[in-house]
């Protein structure tokens, strides 16, 4: 008698556990799409990677383009700017980083950076400030010709987005 009752209990428990497990799988399978729909949709993702043609940007000129809804500076630097940036000793920097680490090898004349000040997100003004780089009018952060923070409340250098050169004149950001 006792064994029979035990078998009954085990079998019943198994059934309940199996049903519960399947129900849990069902809840999970329903929950995921409801969360995933919050992620960027296909039309947004299609613009997550953009290509940009550098032809026509003269030395000393810079343009602002839009990438993932953020403004991005693309600056064709002068020899002098590159020189100054390279010669700055790391010890003078608030957020030490060499100029070479901020540009692509062989393309040192091109500086590509997200145009939001790392302090509170304003867009700094180009070719200004005491280091002839960028100056943020909102709270007075000063960046050098490599976009590195030199003075003011911003904690870090202007952010370099992930990008690569497809050809000498075509970059792909993202």
């Amino acid at each position: 008698m006792a064994t029979q009752a035990e078998t009954q209990t085990t079998r019943r428990d198994f059934l309940y556990v199996a049903t519960g497990a399947v129900a849990a799988v069902g809840v999970g399978a329903v929950a995921w799409p409801l969360i995933n729909q919050l992620n960027p949709d296909a039309s947004t993702l299609a613009l997550a990677t953009i290509r940009f043609n550098l032809d026509g940007i003269e030395v000393g000129q810079s343009v602002t383009i839009l990438w993932r809804g953020l403004p991005v500076f693309v600056r064709h630097r002068t020899e002098e700017e590159i020189e100054t940036a390279r010669e700055t000793p790391l010890s003078e920097l608030k957020d030490p980083q060499t100029d070479a680490a901020r540009v692509k090898e062989g393309h040192a004349e091109w500086l590509v950076m997200i145009a939001n000040c790392t302090h509170l997100g304003c867009i700094p003004v180009g070719e200004s400030g005491e280091y002839d780089g960028w100056f943020c009018p909102c709270h007075g952060s000063v960046y050098d010709t490599s976009g590195r923070i030199r003075r003011g409340p911003a904690p870090t250098n202007l952010v370099v987005p992930p990008y690569e050169f497809l050809t000498d004149s075509m970059i792909e950001i993202g």
Partner: peptide, 10 residues
């Protein structure tokens, strides 16, 4: 229907 993740089903 077209672009949102799982949008066609939802």
């Amino acid at each position: 229907r077209r672009d949102v993740n799982g949008g066609r089903i939802i």
